[in-house]
Design a protein around this nucleic acid. Structure first.
Length: 747
DNA sequence: TTCCTTGTCGCCCGG
DNA sequence: CGACAAGGAA
């Protein structure tokens, strides 16, 4: 016990040993928030105040949940299994699976991610022959998700006025489709779980009796529905059974755009009679100047709960501000600084490059690539988002739940089997008449033409071919282990053959193999290794497993993605009006304050060194735009800043100082390799290809091999004698070859 | 039906 | 600039 509590500062100690009643912990950036949360759980268990099965801890990201589990596991030899630790979506999903009947869902209900949901919405619009111009699909998606996050069903939304009425009708149609197909989107997980608990008294009492401690991470990011869900579980007023332990920081609330409601912090105080807010204000992360600069910035916001971070560390270095002429100039400055820092011995992985929006990564990637600096981009396309993986998953979904029209539409003609728009229309008409799913309509259609069906079924083409494929997969996969099911699906569906025939299909095939690998490790790790569980995992986790995380590489990500992380050195780029703060924020209520909090989050990621940069002009949306420096820079007192500027346009700052040139762009085609990132399912460290081009080869180049024929270089790794290249041969497929042995010739 | 070209429009953050 | 829908040719 004492070992658990040593090294905690007085405020942390107070939070950890807080009695069995609700608490609100205002935890500043770098103040040991996660430590308090996990130590509190360990303390409760070790002191015998509670049992693992009586604890519920909820976070926003899978990563945070995993970290929490790992840290508790390291502190206590306790069975984590009994605890409910996970994301809001994960826990709601768990609850809905357990009580799917009470929740009105089929046993194998499927989860729609954003892209799936958008596809359904496009179907709704098409069905109602609504033009994409009069009602953009994204707007409808936003409307539906927002309504759900407010706890509103289609019948409850405001339908006054023509436009609102259209929206409400579309929402209603969307609800009907979801119901019929047994699909559930992200917001629906929350809403349905909430409805289940509020309607079903027996279940509600069951869970209320079970959970004595409900701990909430990043409480400032909860939306209204999530807070209601928590209240329902804990009970409130005289009904209150559980103690809520909420940890958050109003200054780090950056998710208002998706419904986060900071007001929940004040509401919690009131609703649960929290006697006082515990403030964690000692920062263990950043040096003084960085912290002071961040504090000064956030002072400009109004209505804060109020806190002032301090550090026992020294002042450290000043915050550097670089004024660039162009985005290229900005990039070359950053690249040169990284080179210099790396030469001084700083690991690349200690450096983070942050930006407001994903589109900005392009220029930065380009610069890093040309300078042969390894980098890693977080948050782009994820493994389970990839086209070929989604196709494979769609087949799997049809096996689990054939009424999922969305899945069916995705692959009924992929790979192409002669089912065109015309056939599909007939099928849809019939389904509409019968009031069934497309799959039922397809079966019906096959019955009517039995002999033809048998013939076509054998050839594998047409609707009968498709139907017999799915039927036979359904039958023979019954009871098989998951990886074997997937292997058969990708094989018999013709996906593998299709991508083999495609010139650029090599990487896609690799991803299909990787899907089987993912299933194999899923089977080993998960309690429930069913197909349905795997499909849910794919939707909820998106494939954030971090392969090659050990490689030394600069970390590129958006500011949102950086929340909760820390780095020795941080660059924040693109600090221009319109970009950061983003221009869209001007029209939103309190939009500017949210942008400022975002900036605050970005700055407080840095431990020892912080760079801010902006450019006078920048390529945006395909055209050059001239920008003014961000007001956020002006809001930081000059005492904490050191201003730098390029001596001449186009040249780097360090170039001007030292004369060490910024490497001329190599012949390596950056564009041709961009889309290859993620071949392992996530952002991959990219070894730049300069060395390779020195040997006469570069990525994207055509080469020939005595045995395998001609092909294209896809990738490379290692250097010198160990260097290997990945080549996609036209005939022989994709292979890794060692340059030391294979005789490759450039074409 | 399929593949390829052309054209339009959006373009911030995410589980 | 890039994703994606619509339209045209084989």
């Amino acid at each position: 016990m004492t070992a658990l509590l040593t090294d905690l500062n007085p405020e942390q100690l107070e939070a950890v040993t807080w009695p069995h009643r609700s608490a609100l912990v205002l935890a500043g950036a770098g103040s040991g928030k996660t430590r308090v949360l996990t130590t509190r759980i360990a303390y409760l268990l070790q002191a015998g105040h509670t049992q693992p099965q009586n604890i519920l801890a909820v976070t926003f990201t899978n990563k945070a949940a995993r970290e929490m589990i790992a840290r508790i596991g390291a502190m206590l030899p306790v069975n984590i299994r009994g605890m409910w630790i996970g994301t809001f979506h994960g826990l709601c999903h768990r609850m809905l699976r357990a009580h799917h009947e009470d929740a009105g869902l089929p046993q194998a209900f499927q989860i729609l991610d954003m892209a799936d949901q958008l596809a359904v919405i496009k179907r709704v619009l098409k069905e109602r022959s609504l033009d994409e111009k009069t009602l953009p699909p994204r707007q409808l998606q936003w409307f539906i998700n927002n309504a759900k996050e407010e706890g509103l069903r289609a019948s409850q939304v405001d339908a006054r006025g023509n436009f609102n009425q259209t929206l409400a009708e579309c929402y209603r149609a969307y609800e009907a489709i979801s119901m019929r197909e047994g699909t559930v989107d992200f917001a629906e997980l929350l809403l349905r779980s909430h409805e289940l608990l509020s309607r079903n008294e027996i279940l509600r009492d069951h869970y209320r009796n079970r959970f004595e401690h409900v701990l909430v991470d990043e409480f400032q990011d909860t939306n209204r529905l999530q807070y209601k869900w928590i209240k329902l579980l804990a009970g409130s007023g005289l009904q209150q059974h559980a103690a809520i332990f909420a940890v958050g920081d109003d200054d780090q609330s950056i998710y208002a755009f998706r419904g986060a409601h900071v007001g929940n912090m004040r509401d919690l105080e009131k609703d649960f009679n929290v006697p006082k807010i515990i403030r964690l204000e000692q920062n263990y992360r950043s040096h003084g100047n960085i912290l002071d600069a961040a504090n000064a910035l956030i002072e400009n916001n109004k209505g804060r709960l109020g806190k002032n971070l301090w550090t026992a560390a020294g002042k450290g270095e000043l915050v550097r501000v670089y004024h660039a002429s162009t985005d290229m100039d900005e990039t070359s400055f950053i690249v040169d600084e990284i080179k210099a820092l790396h030469a001084e011995g700083l690991a690349l992985s200690d450096i983070a490059l942050l930006y407001r929006s994903n589109a900005q990564s392009r220029v930065l990637e380009h610069g890093l690539f040309n300078a042969s600096i390894s980098y890693r981009v977080y948050g782009g396309m994820r493994f389970f988002d990839r086209q070929e993986v989604k196709h494979a998953l769609a087949y799997l979904r049809l096996i689990a739940l054939p009424d999922d029209d969305n899945a069916l539409l995705r692959i009924i003609n992929f790979p192409p089997r002669g089912i065109g728009a015309r056939t599909l229309e007939q099928l849809q008409d019939q389904a509409g008449e019968l009031g069934t799913s497309l799959w039922q309509a397809a079966l019906k259609a096959c019955e009517n033409v039995k002999t033809a069906a048998v013939r076509a079924g054998q050839s594998g083409r047409g609707v009968p071919g498709f139907a017999s494929l799915v039927l036979s997969l359904q039958q023979e996969c019954e009871g098989l282990p998951l990886p074997e099911i997937i292997r058969r699906v990708v094989d018999q569906s013709g996906l593998v053959a299709h991508y083999q025939a495609e010139r650029e299909g090599g990487e896609r095939l690799e991803n299909l193999k990787e899907l089987i690998n993912a299933a194999t490790s899923f089977v080993h790790e998960a309690e429930d290794d069913s197909l349905t569980a795997f499909l849910a995992h794919a939707s909820l986790e998106g494939g954030e497993h971090q392969a090659e995380g050990h490689q030394d590489a600069v970390q590129l990500m958006t500011v949102h993605a950086a929340k909760g992380l820390e780095f020795q050195t941080v660059f924040i780029s693109g600090l221009e009006e319109g970009l950061f703060p983003h221009e869209n924020s001007r029209n939103e209520p309190n939009g500017l304050e949210e942008e400022r909090r975002l900036m605050y989050v970005a700055m407080t990621r840095a431990q020892q060194r912080l760079y801010l940069s902006y450019a006078e002009s920048r390529m945006l949306h395909g055209q050059v735009r001239v920008n003014v420096p961000s007001r956020f820079i002006d809001e930081i007192p000059d005492d904490f800043l050191k201003r730098l500027r390029s001596s001449f346009s186009g040249g780097g700052y360090r170039q001007a100082l030292t004369g060490t040139g910024y490497a001329a762009p190599s012949t390596t085609s950056f564009a041709s390799t961009r889309h290859q990132r993620n071949s392992d399912g996530n952002a991959v460290t990219k070894m730049a290809a300069q060395r390779l081009s020195g040997e006469g080869f570069h990525i994207g180049q055509q080469v020939s091999h005595t045995k395998f024929g001609t092909g294209t270089i896809l990738n490379c790794e290692g250097s010198g004698a160990d260097m290997r290249v990945q080549v996609n041969f036209r005939q022989a497929g994709t292979k890794w070859l060692s340059l030391a042995y294979a005789k490759l010739e450039a074409l």
